[in-house]
């Protein structure tokens, strides 16, 4: 049975990339920037021996977007790599080359929040229907459905 990672171990591995704090005994968070996130993921995979990506969570906290990459490994500790993106230009390099399942997760986040993953091979619709209008990102806090826009499905005039 592997030991849980300690904060010092994570801090050493993530040196120079951001601040490290322990949210719980088995969850350690690293706050970093979009430019350094790929390096952080790389270090988590190599130095911290993480081999499983649990989730890529995306939050709109009203002021900016946050992305949290949650990774875990045989040590059963979740390493959460957190970064903030500005609202007007939410771009971040893709992690799908390092983490193959991120291919699907990033498409979902792009559909719902509009975050652009630079370098993603196939950022197409996955979770919203194919006739959903462009540039409407429903999980954003400031999004409200516009009664005059057609969001897909059957046209109401046809239903009559």
């Amino acid at each position: 049975m592997s030991e849980l990672l300690k904060v010092e171990q994570v801090a050493k591995a993530m040196e120079g990339l951001g601040t490290v704090d322990a949210m719980k005994p088995n969850r350690i968070r690293v706050a970093t920037t979009p430019a350094k996130v790929k390096e952080a993921v790389q270090r988590a995979l190599k130095d911290l021996k993480c081999d499983h990506v649990v989730q890529i969570a995306a939050v709109d906290n009203g002021k900016s977007f946050e992305l949290i990459y949650n990774l875990t490994g045989p040590h059963h500790t979740v390493v959460s790599i957190l970064l903030e993106l500005p609202r007007d230009k939410p771009e971040v390099p893709t992690a799908s080359d390092l983490l193959p399942p991120a291919g699907l997760y990033e498409r979902q986040i792009h559909d719902l929040l509009g975050i652009v993953f630079v370098g993603h091979p196939n950022l197409k619709r996955i979770i919203l229907n194919e006739d959903w209008p462009e540039n409407e990102f429903p999980m954003r806090k400031d999004w409200k459905p516009n009664p005059n826009t057609f969001y897909g499905g059957v046209h109401t005039e046809e239903a009559k």
Binding site: V54, Q55, A57, D60, N70, L104
Partner: peptide, 23 residues
């Protein structure tokens, strides 16, 4: 996996679900 952010109210601020089938 449920990723939950709470904010001192009786509602969640963000609920992000990752289902096993998607994984």
């Amino acid at each position: 996996v449920h990723f939950i952010r709470t904010n001192n109210t009786d509602k969640v601020e963000r609920l992000d679900i990752r289902t096993p089938t998607l994984a």
